[in-house]
Amino acid sequence: MVVRTINGLNEIVGRVISVLAIIFAAIIIYDVVLRYVFNEPTRWAFDVSKQLFGFYFVLLGGYALRHKAHVRVDILTEKLGRGGQRIADLLGYAIFFFPFAWVFLTRSWEFAERSWAQGEVTYGAIQMPVYPLKMAMCVAAGLLLVQGVAEVLKIVFDRQEASE
């Protein structure tokens, strides 16, 4: 139940956020057409597409972990049996993943909190608020952390999802 809920949450977030790729691609195409066909570049397209790409990139971490799309170094574990691979995966999560995810969560929270308090904005052609993107980093860290919990539970209970 817990694993299914976490997987479902990251699946929904991943699918919703993936639409941003279409939006920022459309903005870039719009800007290129205005710039090179009509000689009327936009002042906002670069900053907006950069912000959207930031949301896209950070918020897909949990989704990527759920679908095993992160880089893995299996050279050492490929020769181990299933039990050895499970132990290596558990150690990897305990030693590397969870400490990283915790630092990412706590530091991004401080980062977002400071940005919100300052009302931080970009200093580009247009002044866009920065704190939503920094808050997205914190949300992304939380999603990544809970997906890590789901992955560990799958290993512990030796359970594979039907969709994988």
Results as ranks from 00 to 15, higher is better:
M1L: 11
I6V: 13
N7Q: 14
V16S: 03
V16E: 00
S18Y: 12
V19R: 08
L20E: 02
L20C: 05
L20R: 01
I23A: 12
F24L: 08
I27A: 02
I29A: 13
I29V: 14
I29C: 09
Y30N: 09
Y30C: 10
D31W: 04
V32A: 08
L34N: 14
R35K: 13
V37K: 10
V37P: 06
P41Q: 08
S49F: 09
K50D: 02
K50G: 02
K50C: 04
Q51N: 11
G54L: 07
Y56S: 04
F57M: 07
A64P: 03
H67Y: 13
H70T: 09
I75K: 06
T77Y: 00
T77N: 02
L80S: 03
R82P: 08
G84W: 06
Q85E: 03
I87L: 14
A88P: 02
D89G: 15
G92N: 08
A94L: 14
I95Q: 01
F97N: 03
F100V: 09
F100T: 09
A101P: 03
R107K: 14
F111K: 01
F111H: 13
A112R: 01
S115G: 01
S115T: 04
G119A: 09
T122R: 04
Y123T: 13
Y123D: 11
G124I: 01
I126G: 01
V130M: 11
P132T: 04
P132E: 00
K134V: 12
M137H: 11
G148M: 05
F157D: 13
D158E: 15
R159C: 09
Q160K: 15
E161Q: 10
S163P: 13
